[in-house]
Structures are given as structure tokens and as C-alpha cells.
């Protein structure tokens, strides 16, 4: 599998970002845990380069290592071996500086339900060293950006799932980060809320912020991402633009038309639509 994957990645060298404009760089990134069952290798040597200004999609089945990789890149998890730089800063050696350059919105839409949206954003601003006045001004701007002005002074516990996601996005943008990490930003949202979040991501990206997005929804990746990587079993198994990955599969399989990103994903991860006899693996895509 690894040899085939290397071949797939080698076919698209032209799409690798130029060295001078790399927003996220990971080299031989490894994460191992000790558990009762022994040592678990969650991430087994991930190499990544994300160009500044890109929307980069990071796909993979459940348990493939997506969130673990993101948590290492965002300083929330220690790195067992390898190096990672975000906006040019080594996340292991200068974590505070790296945190100033990145915004993070994780899977759970981590918010404090007892605060109002405005209070949460002001606090977030103060934690990034803004004065109370500047934090309040920035909170106002962001509430307008994510269209939550009317709900701004209501407690977050009363927000819908979509509103929470948008507020979470806003809180990740308080300090105007260079790179925004979004870990499954639309999981659990209804279709309308999902489209709203997509619009927000596009709007944030057009303002110059690099977006690193993990998702299980291939349509989302197809719609939003300039480039993407597929991780499986802790290793990157595909990397390129959606069009390149589809063309590669079409050429390799001799298909008469372009396959979908779902087909690329299933091919890359060795899954099948029906699953083999006795195969109990589940494919969310």
C-alpha cells in the first residue's frame, strides 16, 4: 500500500506548494500512545505542506488519524517524533508563538454554554492580549461577520447547532490568525447550516487566511478545498487537487469518465461500497 501511495503522490509534484509560501509543514510526524493493549500508533509518519492562502482538506475514515494530526499541529497534543511548523513557527518549540498565528475550531464546537456569544468573544480577545475595549470592538465585528448580532447577548446554551458552529468559527478568528484549523466543522449540522458554514469558510479564505479543514464529507471537500490529502491508518495515502486525484484514478483504472471523490476515497482507503464478506468496517463517506 505504501509503495502505491508514494507513486500517487509522486505523479503530482507540480502541485506541491512553493517553499516560500508554506503555511503548514509537517515532516515525519508520529504519535504513539501507550494503552493497556500495548503501544498504539495513531499517526505513523505524516508529511504535509499546505500553501499559504489554500483551503486544504484532510480526509480519512474514523480513527484514521485526522484529529490526532490536527491536535499535534495545533499544540494540543505532544508530538512523539517528527516536526511541525505553522506559519513558520515550530509548534513543539514555540507553542505560544504558534498559538498566536493559528485559530482552532475543533470537532466539539468548544464553547462555554453559560456565557453569551459576545462575552465569549470578548474573553477570547482578552486571552489574546487585546484590551477590553479592543476585544469588545473585535467581538462586534466578528458577530457581524458570522451574522449572530441578534443572538449576541443570549446565552450560548440556547443557540442552535449551526449558530454554535458559527460562533466557534468567530472565536477562532478573534486574533486574525494566519492559519485556521477546522476539525469537522459541519459534522452534525443540517444541510442549511452546513451551507452557511461553507460560505463562512470561503469568506474567511478570501480574506487571506489559510484553512486546514478535516472532514468526513467528500462533497464538502470537493466544494471547498483547493487541495486535499487522504489519511488512512495513520499514513497519508493520497494527496493532490480533487481534479488530479480523480484523473489519476480514471487513468489507473481505465475508466470512461471521471470518478467521484467518493470513489477516490474508497480506492485510497481500501474500502468498498458494500464491504466484503465478513468485513464489518464502516465507511462514513
Amino acid at each position: 500500500m505504501a509503495e502505491r501511495n508514494d507513486a500517487v503522490r509522486a505523479e503530482a509534484p507540480a502541485m506541491r506548494p512553493a517553499d516560500g509560501a508554506i503555511a503548514v509543514h509537517a515532516e515525519a510526524l508520529v504519535k504513539t500512545y501507550r494503552s493497556r493493549a500495548g503501544v498504539v500508533e495513531a499517526v505513523r509518519g505524516v508529511d504535509l505542506d499546505v500553501a499559504a492562502g489554500e483551503v486544504f482538506g484532510f480526509l480519512g475514515p474514523n480513527g484514521a488519524g485526522k484529529s490526532t494530526t490536527v491536535r499535534m499541529l495545533t499544540t494540543l497534543l505532544s508530538i512523539t517524533s517528527g516536526t511541525a511548523r505553522v506559519a513558520g513557527v515550530d509548534v513543539a518549540h514555540q507553542p505560544d508563538l504558534a498559538r498566536r498565528r493559528m485559530g482552532v475550531a475543533l470537532q466539539e464546537a468548544g464553547l462555554d454554554p453559560r456565557q453569551t456569544g459576545r462575552e465569549l468573544l470578548i474573553l477570547q480577545g482578552r486571552l489574546f492580549n487585546l484590551s477590553h475595549r479592543d476585544a469588545a470592538r473585535r467581538a462586534g465585528e466578528l458577530l457581524e461577520l458570522v451574522e449572530l448580532e441578534e443572538a449576541a447577548d443570549r446565552r450560548i446554551s440556547g443557540y442552535s447547532g449551526g449558530m454554535k458552529r458559527r460562533l466557534d468559527l468567530a472565536s477562532a478568528l478573534v486574533h486574525e490568525p494566519d492559519v485556521l484549523f477546522l476539525d469537522e466543522p459541519t459534522t452534525g449540522l443540517d444541510p442549511a447550516s452546513r451551507l452557511t458554514v461553507w460560505d463562512e469558510v470561503r469568506r474567511i479564505n478570501t480574506r487571506g487566511t489559510t484553512v486546514f479543514l478535516t472532514t468526513q464529507y467528500l462533497e464538502e471537500a470537493d466544494q471547498l478545498c483547493d487541495r486535499l490529502a487522504i489519511i488512512d491508518d495513520g499514513r497519508i495515502v493520497r494527496e493532490g487537487t480533487p481534479a488530479e486525484l480523480k484523473a489519476e484514478l480514471r487513468g489507473r483504472r481505465g475508466l470512461s469518465s471521471d470518478p467521484s471523490l467518493d470513489d477516490v476515497f474508497l480506492d485510497a482507503t481500501g474500502r468498498t461500497r458494500g464491504g466484503g464478506a465478513g468485513d464489518v468496517r464502516e465507511v462514513s463517506a
Binding site: T74, Q107, E108, L111, Q124, L127, S171
Partner: peptide, 16 residues
């Protein structure tokens, strides 16, 4: 509650 809900990670992702 914050650890389970994810807000604790949000705080850890700030440079404080």
C-alpha cells in the same frame, strides 16, 4: 464539563 465539551481545549489553544 469543559473538558468533555471542548472549551478546555479552546483555552489551551490560546497563548496564555
Amino acid at each position: 464539563e469543559e473538558i468533555e465539551g471542548g472549551y478546555f481545549d479552546k483555552l489551551r489553544a490560546t497563548p496564555i
